[in-house]
Amino acid sequence: MIRKTTNQKGWLFVAPVVLLVAFNAVIPLMTVVNYSIQETFGDNVFFFEGVKWFEEVLHSERFHAALMRQLAFTGMILAIEVPLGVAIALAMPRKGPWVSVCLVLMALPLLIPWNVVGAMWNIFALPDIGLLGRTINALGIDYNFTRQPGSAWFTLILMDVWHWTSLVVLLAYAGLSSIPDAFYQAAKIDGAGAWAIFRYIQLPKMKRVLTIAILLRFMDSFMIYTEPFVLTGGGPGNSTTLLSIDLVKIALGQFDLGPAAAMSLIYFLIILLLSWVFYTLMTRNEAN
């Protein structure tokens, strides 16, 4: 009988990463779990509270509202960025000198720091001096993102689409570039139209990269903080207060570390669940 030998040396190579993750992720996570069942007023003094903070967060209308806003934001940007990114990738040239130009142009928004993006769009969208704000008002549309929740949401979505669609474009383009010419030649011989080529050749070949793109955009958008904070500060009122902004307000603004820790854990569990569902749905037929 032949026995398969297993080389355990590989564990040595991943040991440094395991240690690093233990220090920068597991220990902070353990601390958050510890904080979530206690109350503190500082000076390293803690009072046991049990599951009180979890109960408080679960019954908090403020948390429900922030969660709904977060789900709406993530749903909208995924619905816009993924199809738009694929459409732009399909329209980009595959050969020739314009390839580099297009790729550099697409990569540019990704190179800008998040707080700078927020500041840029804040100025760009101001109704009195910003190019976007003044243009929209000149068209006869009443637009003021500092006062109107609808305008604030429009600006927030537009900013995120501008900043992050490029990521979907670059990933989709990488998927499209990996399709051999023979596939297109075979489709041409069969008389396939543009839709048939997209449906049966390009989309299946992009599936893996689109899975990564959707997961990355989902996780990033669900955790977004800096850009909306700099753009609107969560306002007007609480209309653009997403989960992360609300969490920071509770943890640092009010110094309620217990409720903030409980909210962090619930927030983390929601991201974990939705990421798992996305990943499972998108990869469930791969084994076939």
């Binding site: 220990i27 601390t31 510890n34 206690q38 803690f46 046991f48």
Partner: peptide, 14 residues
């Protein structure tokens, strides 16, 4: 490790 605010409940959980 007092900054980690351990309790026996969370220790049992982990």
């Amino acid at each position: 490790l007092s900054w980690m605010a351990w309790t026996w409940h969370t220790a049992v959980f982990f």
